[in-house]
Amino acid sequence: MDFLLSRRSRPAKLLSGPAPDRATLERILEAGGRVPDHGKLEPWRFVVLEGAALARVATAIRARGADTGQDGEKAAAAFEGAPVAIIVVGVPKESEKIPADEQVLSAGCAAFNVLTAALASGWGANWLTGWIARDPMLLRETFGLEGDEWIAGFIHIGTCETAVPERPRPDMDAVTRWVSE
């Protein structure tokens, strides 16, 4: 409980090497898969980017940003700084029983579990999206998505040596309603 109450993402621009090893990443991904998933549809999948793949993605983002007038520098920098990025891909499944919104929530939970597992393991991590998560050309050509797949998040993971200040949190009384009857 103490970890959850003090959980704090680390900005992607502060992440650097070393990276978690393969065994650690596999455990982080395993935690990512332990989410609510009504109907056991697995409406998500993971793509792990390391090494040269990160540089390739950063180059593609810069080029696409120049083509579209988007800020490609900031988005590309996140892929160049952190030594690992895990793409959480939403994979909608046909189901008569499980509505699409529950599948979206499951993909969001998978992204949050990957983020939380990385942080709980002592790594710096950040969950980002932005325009690159919605650009059709990047989705197909750079990230390899198919059909109606979509990006729930890019989880950047690495080492963070910088102390990160707390940010304002919600006033829980303002967002909570207690019902007794």
Rank of each mutant, 00 (worst) to 15 (best):
R140M: 01
G65T: 10
L105P: 00
E30M: 07
V84T: 14
A63R: 13
A174S: 10
R45T: 07
L49D: 01
I151M: 03
A31E: 11
G124H: 02
F3Y: 05
E26M: 12
R10S: 15
A78E: 02
I157E: 03
A125C: 04
V89K: 08
E30Y: 07
S95H: 05
A133F: 09
G39K: 08
I132R: 11
G32K: 01
A19S: 14
A76I: 09
W127P: 00
A100F: 15
I87M: 12
L54H: 04
T159P: 08
D71E: 04
D148K: 04
L128W: 05
P99F: 08
A52P: 07
R7P: 01
G39S: 06
E141G: 07
F79G: 02
V89R: 05
I157A: 08
A82G: 06
W44E: 00
E73M: 07
E94V: 13
G144E: 09
E141H: 13
A85D: 06
T176F: 05
V88L: 02
E73F: 09
V35N: 11
E102C: 08
L15S: 10
A117F: 08
L41R: 09
G33Y: 06
A77K: 14
Q70G: 01
E146G: 04
V48E: 01
E161P: 04
A100Q: 14
V175L: 10
A133L: 10
K93F: 00
E141K: 15
P92A: 00
R45C: 05
E146W: 01
R167H: 14
P11S: 13
E149F: 13
D135G: 02
I86D: 00
L128Q: 11
D173R: 08
C109G: 07
R134N: 06
R140P: 00
I61S: 04
A78D: 06
V88K: 01
E30R: 12
T68P: 01
R169G: 13
G153A: 06
S9V: 14
L139Y: 06
E161N: 12
T176D: 08
I155L: 01
A82N: 02
A53N: 03
Q103V: 06
T116D: 12
F112G: 09
V175N: 07
L119V: 12
G122R: 05
A77R: 14
D101W: 15
A19M: 04
